[in-house]
Design a protein around this nucleic acid. Structure first.
Lengths: 343, 343
DNA sequence: ATACCACGGGACAATATTTGTCCAAACAAA
DNA sequence: TTTGTTTGGACAAATATTGTCCCGTGGTAT
């Protein structure tokens, strides 16, 4: 891999070629079959450049073309797979990971090159990596907590099924996080269970319940069991949100939002709101994972990308030093920038 | 290093660029100061190509130019140094080394890319590598035997002096191998001793002596001491020659040459002649290293390059399986070709 | 059955780059 | 002083790249 730095000195043009061809191959693999023109639109490359590179890649047997468009070949997939770390190296991802891990003082940081907000492929790659990390942590008998959110949905979608099924239980980490997000969490849990094997449990808690109604529900045996599962969870995979966006998505009342703002809320995770220092500012009233349980968990995987989430990530990272963070290049750089500015 | 094979697939142009720039940088480092035109003559590149690449390399700070010509910078030397293994990898040298080591069934094979016969730089590089190997084997108190020949002269010339001097004794492995070669061996021994530190002993034995005269000489105390050193040598570095060329160089009588030919002599080393199977065919009458001593030595370094020596190398390699062979790409490929043809 | 759309690939002129070859000024060596 | 290098500038000719358009094909929605 040291070789690459040498090439940067002695043949920098090669780096550009490499990057261009990598991006083309990758984009095709994610969008096949795709035509020359749409490809150049997606990548922002000139049509002619795409055409030439595509010709090259075809000659190398890395992709096939028919009247429907272009497809990646098996050889291409293999090559693309080996190319990922090379591209990461070119983009300086490994260094970025080390820096960020030190800065946030957490267990591990994985960064995907690019911006998951603008580029669906990056989000999907984040899902793939999360999938790998999860598989490396999970043991038979584990209870795995999951939250909702579009990021988590993507993770579930990209989860690569195993041949070996596992004896694990998936469960939503929180109940009733607004109707949309709630159902989403449930369906994500189902997707995970289907792909990894194992059982799952859904958690339906109506929204905006009064204290008495909540207590009533809690007397239900099924519910008690679910909550005990949550209380004993071994692994948590969760998304991180901006306080403001999440407040809007949940249609919180105006006064609530103002209160959050006045208290400096920047981050939301599993129904809790935090300021930039990681102080809890407010908790959405429902059942599920408590902050204390979260802080005491060892296997905690946070997934969040896009520079707009930088502040939120900084906040959440202070809560648990065992956290494993999966993010993207833009978020990572923004975090470094913010912390640099602060010091 | 795996990276390089990936680059061969995804950006083969890069390999050419790399190779071209490497060769230019290397040639400059060996011939500085050198002008654009002589450089393109040596390399067989078009002047314009050289000019462009040289411009690039200068921009990268790898070489300097003044009115005398081009020089490599310190940065350039460092880069060139790291580039050697990359170039070897491109040329498939590591694979070639493994193949040849197995084929010849000897302890180690080091191959330099190129042809030492046509390219002085390759010969010098062989010298550098030999220098490294020798340093890795040598211990204080060792007696090191040396032979003559143009290859050995180059090795001595390129020997990189150490800061730490060693307590070793250098001695010619054989006496009286024809006047030229003999004096050469003596001067090579002196060069080695000067560069590595330690003492040395010269060995003068007049050529073409009759039995009686030889016996007389052997009674000399000094000579006895020298021969005992040779008999106790710990390390031998020797060149391998073609039987025919060495016979000519020694002005052997016509009948002798015919005899050698009829017996199938192909190789010469330290005054002994061998057929392709490694059977001794004749021994030049003088004092010094015996074949038995040679066969029982553990640290034996053979240095020989150029495809014309392929057969001779094959022959000599059968004599001692502890041999370390330092050769060049052309010889290596020719050896593989010859053996392939034979089977 | 029809009309439409996106596909690859051929074609080609406009434009940019590469290439080969000069030459002059600067300096070293003889 | 003369001769032989050297670099770097210059420039026209040759070659490659680039941007675009069009055409036939076949899938797909209607």
């Amino acid at each position: 891999m040291e070789t690459l730095n040498l090439i940067k000195i002695i043949a920098p043009e090669a780096i550009n070629i490499l990057e261009e061809r990598y991006l083309i191959l990758r984009t095709i693999s994610y969008n096949q079959p795709i035509g020359r023109r749409s490809l150049s639109d997606i990548l922002g490359f000139k049509e002619r450049a795409v055409r030439d590179q595509v010709n090259f890649l075809r000659n190398q047997g890395l992709l096939k073309i028919d009247f429907m468009g272009m497809y990646i070949t098996d050889e291409g997939i293999k090559t693309l797979e080996s190319l990922h770390p090379v591209y990461n190296q070119i983009k300086g991802i490994p260094e970025l990971e080390v820096k960020l891990k030190k800065l946030l003082n957490i267990r591990k940081v994985s960064i995907l090159p690019g911006n998951s907000r603008d580029n669906g492929m990056v989000l999907r790659d984040m899902g793939k990596i999360t999938s790998k990390v999860l598989k490396s942590l999970i043991k038979d008998g584990d209870i795995v907590g999951i939250t909702g959110g579009s990021t988590m949905a993507a993770v579930a979608e990209e989860f690569v099924p195993d041949k070996v099924k596992r004896e694990v239980t998936f469960i939503p980490a929180r109940g009733g996080l607004g109707r949309d997000v709630e159902t989403q969490a449930n369906s994500i849990v189902a997707t995970f269970a289907k792909k990894l094997g194992g059982t799952y449990r859904l958690l339906f808690v109506p929204d905006g319940l009064e204290k008495e109604a909540l207590e009533y529900i809690l007397r239900n045996e099924d519910m008690k069991e679910s909550l005990s599962l949550i209380d004993n969870m071994d692994i948590l995979i969760f998304g991180i949100g901006r306080a403001d966006t999440m407040a809007k998505r949940r249609n919180l009342p105006e006064e609530r939002v103002e209160d959050l703002i006045s208290k400096g809320a920047v981050a939301e995770a599993f129904g809790h709101y935090f300021d930039v220092k990681g102080n809890e500012v407010w908790e959405y009233k429902t059942v599920g994972l408590s902050l204390n349980k979260f802080k005491s968990l060892y296997n905690v995987i946070a997934v969040a990308g896009g520079e707009e989430k930088a502040e939120a990530i900084i906040s959440i990272a202070t809560l648990n030093e065992n956290m494993i963070l999966i993010t993207d290049e833009f978020a990572a750089k923004k975090i470094l920038e913010l912390v640099d500015k602060a010091t």
